[in-house]
C-alpha cells in the first residue's frame, strides 16, 4: 500500500514537471532553428537592421520591432482609459448586483476569437478610418484600436480583482476621516491596488504583442519604419505567420529567429508581471 502511494506521488510529480519540460522544449526548438541565422547576421545586424528582403539575404527585423512597439503603445492608449474607468466604476461606484452581472459579461468577451476582432476591423473600422483620417484603412491606428479593444477584458477583469482585494477597512478609515469617495479611491484604494493593476496591464501588453491573426488582417503588413500613425506596419508575429508557408533555408531560420526575439520579450514581460504581483502580495 505504502509502495503504491509513493509510486503515485512520483507519477504526479512528473506530471507537474511537464509544464516546465514543455517550456524548455519550446525554447530549445526555437533556439535550435533560429540561432544559426542570428549568429550569422550578428545580433546587432538582426535586431537593428532595417532591411528585410530574405531573397537577397537581408535579415533585419528593426521595422517589425518598431511596428510591434507602436501598435502596442497605441493599444494601451485606447485600452487604459476605458478599462481602468470600467474597473474603478464597477468596483467602487456601481451596486454589487451590476458588478455581478457586468464582470462576467466583460470576461465572456475575452473569448471572442481574434479572427473575429480582425474581421470587425476590416468591415467596420476601415471605412471609418478612411473617412475621418484618410489613407486606405490598414494602418497603425486601426490595429491599435482593435488590439486596444481586444485587451480590454484582460485588463478590466484583473483590475477589478485587485481593487476588490483592497481590505474594506481601508475604505472605512478614509471615509470616516471625511474624505470623499473619489479622494478615497485616488489616495487610498488605487495606491493599494497598484501592483495588481500594473501586472494586469503587463499581461494585456503581452497579449497585444503576441496577437497574430487580428494584426495580419488590419495592420497592413508593409515592412517599413512608419512615419505616421496612418502608415501600414508589420509586427513580429505577422512576419512569422505571413512568410512561414513558403520560407526555406536561411529565410526560415530568420523567421524562427523572429520567434526567439518574441519569446524572450514575452518571458521578460512575464517576469516583470510576476515580480510586481509578488511584491504587492508581500506588502
Amino acid at each position: 500500500m505504502k509502495y503504491r502511494e509513493n509510486l503515485i506521488q512520483i507519477g504526479l510529480l512528473l506530471t507537474a514537471l511537464s509544464t516546465i519540460a514543455i517550456l524548455f522544449l519550446i525554447a530549445l526548438f526555437i533556439l535550435h532553428e533560429g540561432l544559426p541565422i542570428i549568429l550569422k547576421v550578428g545580433i546587432k545586424g538582426f535586431i537593428c537592421g532595417s532591411h528585410w528582403s530574405p531573397q537577397q539575404g537581408h535579415f533585419g527585423i528593426f521595422p517589425m520591432i518598431i511596428g510591434t512597439v507602436w501598435i502596442t503603445i497605441g493599444a494601451l492608449l485606447v485600452s487604459l482609459p476605458l478599462s481602468l474607468s470600467c474597473a474603478i466604476y464597477l468596483s467602487e461606484f456601481s451596486t454589487t448586483k451590476v458588478r455581478a452581472v457586468l464582470k462576467p459579461v466583460i470576461e465572456l468577451l475575452a473569448g471572442i476569437p481574434s479572427v473575429v476582432y480582425g474581421f470587425i476591423g476590416m468591415v467596420v473600422l476601415f471605412p471609418m478610418v478612411r473617412n475621418y483620417f484618410g489613407g486606405t484603412g490598414p494602418c497603425i491606428l486601426s490595429a491599435a484600436i482593435i488590439l486596444g479593444i481586444m485587451i480590454l477584458p484582460t485588463i478590466t477583469s484583473i483590475a477589478i480583482d485587485s481593487l476588490q482585494a483592497v481590505p474594506y477597512s481601508f475604505r472605512e478609515g478614509s471615509l470616516s476621516l471625511g474624505a470623499t469617495r473619489w479622494q478615497t479611491i485616488r489616495m487610498v484604494i488605487l495606491p493599494a491596488a497598484k501592483s495588481g493593476i500594473l501586472s494586469g496591464i503587463i499581461l494585456g501588453v503581452g497579449r497585444a504583442v503576441g496577437e497574430t491573426m487580428a494584426v495580419i488582417m488590419i495592420a497592413g503588413n508593409s515592412v517599413i519604419i512608419p512615419g505616421s500613425f496612418l502608415d501600414p506596419v508589420r509586427t513580429l508575429t505577422a512576419n512569422i505567420a505571413l512568410e512561414m508557408n513558403y520560407a526555406t533555408g536561411d529565410h526560415r531560420q530568420a523567421l524562427f529567429a523572429t520567434g526567439i526575439v518574441l519569446f524572450i520579450a514575452i518571458i521578460i514581460l512575464n517576469i516583470i508581471a510576476n515580480t510586481i504581483a509578488r511584491r504587492g502580495v508581500e506588502k
Binding site: 509544464t19 516546465i20 514543455i22 517550456l23 522544449l25 519550446i26 526548438f29 526555437i30 532553428e33 499581461l203 503581452g206 504583442v209 503576441g210 496577437e211 497574430t212 508575429t237 512569422i240 505567420a241 512561414m244 523567421l255 524562427f256 520567434g259 518574441l262 519569446f263 514575452i266 518571458i267 514581460l269 512575464n270 508581471a273 510576476n274
Partner: peptide, 21 residues
C-alpha cells in the same frame, strides 16, 4: 511560474514549435 509563462506565450510561437516538432 512555468505555467504562467506557458499561458503568456503567443500562439504563433506554439505554432512554430508544433510545426517543427
Amino acid at each position: 511560474f512555468g505555467t504562467e509563462c506557458l499561458a503568456g506565450i503567443p500562439s504563433i510561437i506554439f505554432g512554430l514549435f508544433g510545426f517543427v516538432l
